[in-house]
């Protein structure tokens, strides 16, 4: 135990707890300057080989798909799909429509970031009385590794966001999530890869898109 006259305003318990934490040698393990030089050398070499990396600094890159643009092709596409389904129903091939389009549903295309460049996803989002329902169709995204999962966020900006739920893709099946906020108020949709028990968004975005209004 160290001398106590430094602890004005701190309780004995607080001082004791700090003393215990601060006596851990790991806390005082100095960084290795050789590590820093190696890191700088590796990054500078890689940066020189890929000067275009800076282009990715735009927080709203070209993978953003405006809702309005999608609506133009979504409507005819849905009409065509509906026509096909009617024919299939008539032929008895299909006896149910699991995902009938809902009024007000918007479709948003999410594109992969550098962390998942081959990934794409379509999010169909609709405001319902219980909240915003999000149905995801994801392609090209690896199943989450053990100990990790994917988390969907609706955001106003990089700082303010609401989690819409999590998934891992380790098997087939539809992904349906719910958010307690509206896409109208939280138009940025991101999907992050998370470590289990991670307290906040990891910031490691694998897919994203911005709804720019209809």
């Amino acid at each position: 135990m160290n001398e106590h006259d430094r602890e004005d305003e701190l309780s004995e318990d607080e001082v004791r707890q700090l003393d215990a934490l601060l006596s851990n040698p790991d806390l005082w393990d100095a960084a290795d300057p050789a590590d820093e030089d190696a890191i700088v050398a590796a990054i500078l070499a890689e940066a020189a080989a890929e000067p275009e990396v800076e282009a990715a600094a735009d927080p709203v890159p070209d993978n953003v798909i405006p809702i309005a643009r999608h609506r133009r092709w979504v409507a005819p596409a849905l009409s065509a799909a509906a026509a096909v389904i009617v024919v299939l129903l008539g032929l008895g091939i299909v006896n149910a429509i699991a995902d009938r389009p809902v009024d007000g549903e918007v479709e948003l295309a999410l594109d992969g970031t550098d962390l998942a460049p081959d990934a794409t996803a379509t999010a169909r989002i609709v405001d319902l009385p219980a909240g915003s329902r999000i149905r995801l169709d994801v392609e090209g995204l690896e199943p989450a590794a053990p100990g990790t999962y994917y988390e969907v966020w609706l955001r106003q900006d990089a700082e303010i966001g609401v989690s819409a739920g999590t998934f891992h893709l380790r098997g087939d099946g539809d992904i349906e999530l719910w958010a307690g906020v509206s896409l109208n108020d939280y138009p940025l949709v991101t999907i992050t890869v998370q470590e289990e028990a991670e307290p906040v968004s990891s910031g490691r975005v694998v897919l994203k898109a911005l709804a720019t209004g209809g």
Partner: peptide, 21 residues
């Protein structure tokens, strides 16, 4: 972290992100 920095959301806390990595 440098390789993934292009996907880091500006305004987010950097430390938890780096901790996860």
């Amino acid at each position: 972290a440098w390789r993934a920095a292009s996907s880091f959301e500006p305004g987010r806390e950097f430390a938890p992100w780096l901790y996860a990595i």
